[in-house]
Design a binder for these strands. Structure first.
Lengths: 132, 132
DNA sequence: GTTTTTGCAAAGTATTTGCAAATGG
DNA sequence: CCATTTGCAAATACTTTGCAAAAAC
């Protein structure tokens, strides 16, 4: 296996992501990072996002609708995805990790992880049905 | 809105899907349905899978790895996805729908649905580490 | 006859990859 | 120096779409 080398681009991508509370796509981060590195390429953004999520320094969110999104907050939490405006927001809720044990009870493989997404209409879309 | 017309192709796609216990991709179903309709096009398969899942007659599964998969069983259940062979299997587990209420407690939008996926290593991959 | 669906091909979206040059250690 | 990373462009993977012909009703 190869040794990891520091890169200013990777660092910037990580800092940009951690400074945001939305859950940006690769392309949104590309726009952001280009302010600091105008010549960075989208390929580099994709490569580093994949690398960082393999290292566990960020999280990849697959919403089931459109491109993957990324989250700089790696602590255990779940997301709400609005089926109208497609925004992704953090949910503050009590621990539900017990569902992993429930799933493991009758299963003969090894369950290592789980992911939960909640879907519906966000507060903003419900209040402004005309938009988006 | 337009009225739905019967189509032999759509019927065949649905029957093929319901006859399988794996969770095939559009392309896998395409291969299958072509035995009955050698001239069917992949576009027709995609169109009908989207339509059927909008109608609630089948379910679309987004695994976060590779193409979407489809499930002819629309009853409430959850899935395990092997991170090695990427197989998708049904989990038999007790009801966890309470997590929807837990999520709704501190959230100001409307939660309509949720999806849970479990990840890890399936029994087969664990027993045959060399394969795949 | 009118509307919906199909097959085909082309286009669209998201992401990955090959390669020579640049950077990091 | 040698290994890794970059920028660029081309390639890939998956899915959707426009359109004329066929099928459904």
């Amino acid at each position: 296996m190869s040794t990891l080398k520091y890169s200013r681009q990777r660092e910037s991508i990580k800092v940009c992501l951690q400074g945001r509370k939305d859950h940006p796509t690769a392309d949104m981060l590309y726009t952001d990072v280009r302010k600091e590195f105008p010549n960075i390429s989208l390929g580099t953004v994709y490569r580093n996002l994949s690398l960082l999520s393999e290292l566990g320094e960020i999280k990849r969110l697959t919403t089931g609708d459109g491109p993957d999104r990324f989250d700089g907050d790696t602590s255990t939490h779940h997301h709400f995805i609005c089926r109208k405006c497609h925004c992704v927001t953090d949910l503050t809720m009590r621990d539900i990790s017990e569902i992993k044990n429930v799933a493991a009870e009758n299963f003969r493989g090894t369950i290592e992880d789980y992911s939960v997404n909640f879907y519906g209409i966000c507060e903003n879309c419900r209040n402004h049905p005309g938009n988006v």
